[in-house]
């Protein structure tokens, strides 16, 4: 599709690069974000990556939208849709224990597979982090295979425990905070996703890859305590890439 520049007031605008959610669109968003950062256009105060769009924030006292847009149009020919060759990969522990997965049975019923198969499919995916949002550090990750697609719960929960791993449509996510939420809860990840004392407070970043490694509920609690006690660093779940 053609690139569209969408007005969003006088301090931001959104550049829409594709019409759908897919890794190719996401790669183009990441590529444009990197190009923009390298170009150092005057007046830009930040960017927000999303599935298929990049929102550019600017200071109207320092620059005009028209000038910034002209600068960006000059970069568009060079962006590419090739996903990063060596993204950061994570292997995060997950408990699919009944107590940690209140919607596992309902998902199984809705999709016509057994609960064990739901676990097998989810744990077998390598997820792409499309973007962070909704809550600080909340990763929107895809893509689940079609046979695991389920809608949001008809009754959103008032209280989703922090660490809950949830799915809806083609996406999976981890709730970094206790919050209301409508996604289907199928597990719990004991690794904290957000820490204000880190310079990059979110553990995951857009374009990272995430796999889940099943552990028992008891092991998840042990990992959680070890991280809290400072014996284990959340960074230790980053996979070391051997070329």
């Amino acid at each position: 599709m053609n690139v569209r520049f969408l007005d969003m007031g006088d301090r931001a605008f959104t550049i829409e690069l594709d019409s759908a959610i897919n890794p190719r669109a996401k790669a183009r968003v990441a590529s444009l974000d990197a190009a923009l950062s390298a170009a150092g256009l005057d007046g830009i105060t930040g960017t927000t990556q999303a599935f298929r769009s990049l929102t550019v924030h600017y200071d109207p006292l320092r620059a005009r939208r028209a000038d910034i847009q002209a600068g960006i149009e000059g970069l568009l020919d060079d962006i590419d849709a090739t996903p990063e060759a060596t993204p950061t990969r994570w292997a995060l522990p997950i408990s699919y224990d009944e107590a940690d997965a209140p919607d596992l049975d309902a998902v199984a019923r809705a999709t016509g597979v057994s609960p064990d198969q739901v676990v097998e499919i989810h744990a077998g995916c390598e997820f792409l982090v499309y973007m962070l949002g909704f809550l600080p550090g909340f990763p929107f990750m895809g893509d689940l295979p079609d046979r695991l697609h389920v809608p949001r719960r008809a009754e959103p929960r008032v209280r989703v425990p922090s660490g809950s791993v949830a799915i809806t449509g083609s996406l999976s996510a981890i709730y970094p905070w206790e919050s209301p939420g409508g996604w289907n809860l199928i597990g719990r990840c004991p690794v904290p996703l957000f820490d204000v004392t880190r310079s990059a407070p979110a553990l995951l970043a857009a374009n990272d890859r995430v796999c889940f490694q099943p552990v028992t509920a008891a092991e998840a609690i042990r990992i959680e305590k070890a991280i809290r006690g400072g014996e284990v660093s959340p960074d230790s779940f980053r996979e070391v890439v051997t070329a």
């Binding site: 969003m8 301090r11 759908a20 959610i21 999303a50 599935f51 769009s53 990049l54 929102t55 924030h57």
Partner: peptide
């Protein structure tokens, strides 16, 4: 498809 928002929208 979810995208960036700002105060004021």
């Amino acid at each position: 498809i979810s995208e960036g928002v700002v105060p004021g929208v």
